[in-house]
């Protein structure tokens, strides 16, 4: 039984290969980009606008509001990264309703890549916000003894992020496959529906967790600064 679309390889030349994960990722990229281009080419800044523009604005503002609610003061900075995570994961889950579509997020390689990106983005946004020194100092909070634990915590949560998404996405497809072999026709459809829901939930969770991590990295400095201020006074 196949667990990951990575196993479907269309073309391979040594280390390089084109598997289903990449192909379906490109499909999603193409659809998202084309849709965006199509809709935003006729954007209206007036009071009347097309329903598609309305949908897009709704999605974008909703993501923005979510990021703000997590605690990031300037959502515009984080919107492209976090918003794209959400859109990509949600689109992967949504497209599962298309027959023959394998969600790229059902591949551990994809979720690992996403998790690694979040893993890289957290310190990057942290450093960008508060500077290298200040950011690195947060790893030695509250004391230098905590440095290894902090590093382990950082890595483990990235791993958890990747595995959580992979497990959920993969399980959705897996359950559908299993049910299809046991009870054909009706249940798989219901399970696909359920998979759609869990996919959306996972997209939300992944994005929110990434936002929380970034928020923690950018906010840590604030805490330390507050502490410094308290000490000085």
């Amino acid at each position: 039984m196949r667990l990951s679309p990575d196993a479907i390889i269309f073309w391979q030349s040594g280390f390089f290969k084109i598997n289903a994960t990449l192909v379906f990722t490109w499909v999603i990229m193409a659809v998202l980009t084309a849709g965006s281009v199509l809709i935003t080419s006729r954007l209206s800044s007036g009071l009347t606008r097309s329903r598609w523009q309305n949908v897009l604005e709704m999605i974008v503002t909703a993501i923005k509001e979510q990021i703000r609610e997590v605690g990031l003061a300037d959502p515009e900075i984080y919107l492209p990264f976090l918003g794209t995570i959400f859109l990509f994961v949600a689109a992967s889950a949504l497209f599962t309703i298309l027959p023959g579509f394998e969600p790229p997020t059902g591949s551990l390689s994809t979720t690992a890549a996403l998790a690694l990106l979040v893993f890289a983005a957290v310190p990057l946004f942290g450093i960008r916000k508060q500077g290298m020194r200040s950011y690195l100092k947060t790893y030695m909070e509250p004391t230098a003894v905590m440095l290894p634990f902090n590093i382990i915590g950082e890595i483990s949560r990235t791993l958890a992020l990747a595995v959580r998404l992979f497990g959920n996405m993969m399980s959705g497809g897996m359950i559908a496959g299993i049910l299809l072999t046991i009870t054909p026709f009706f249940f798989p459809a219901v399970m696909t529906l359920l998979g759609l829901l869990t996919g959306m939930v996972q997209a939300y969770i992944f994005t929110i967790l990434a936002a929380v991590y970034i928020s923690a990295a950018t906010r840590a400095q604030k805490h330390s600064r507050h502490r410094e201020e308290d000490a000085s006074t």
């Binding site: 290969k17 980009t33 954007l43 897009l56 794209t84 990509f88 390689s109 690992a112 890549a113 690694l116």
Partner: peptide, 26 residues
């Protein structure tokens, strides 16, 4: 390889989305 390719793909998608979706909509 897929991880690296997906990371690149995702970063590309981030750029595309930023270019064609977030910026114009915002």
């Amino acid at each position: 390889f897929t991880v690296a390719a997906q990371a690149i793909n995702f970063l590309l998608l981030v750029w595309l989305m930023k270019r064609f979706l977030y910026k114009p909509v915002l």
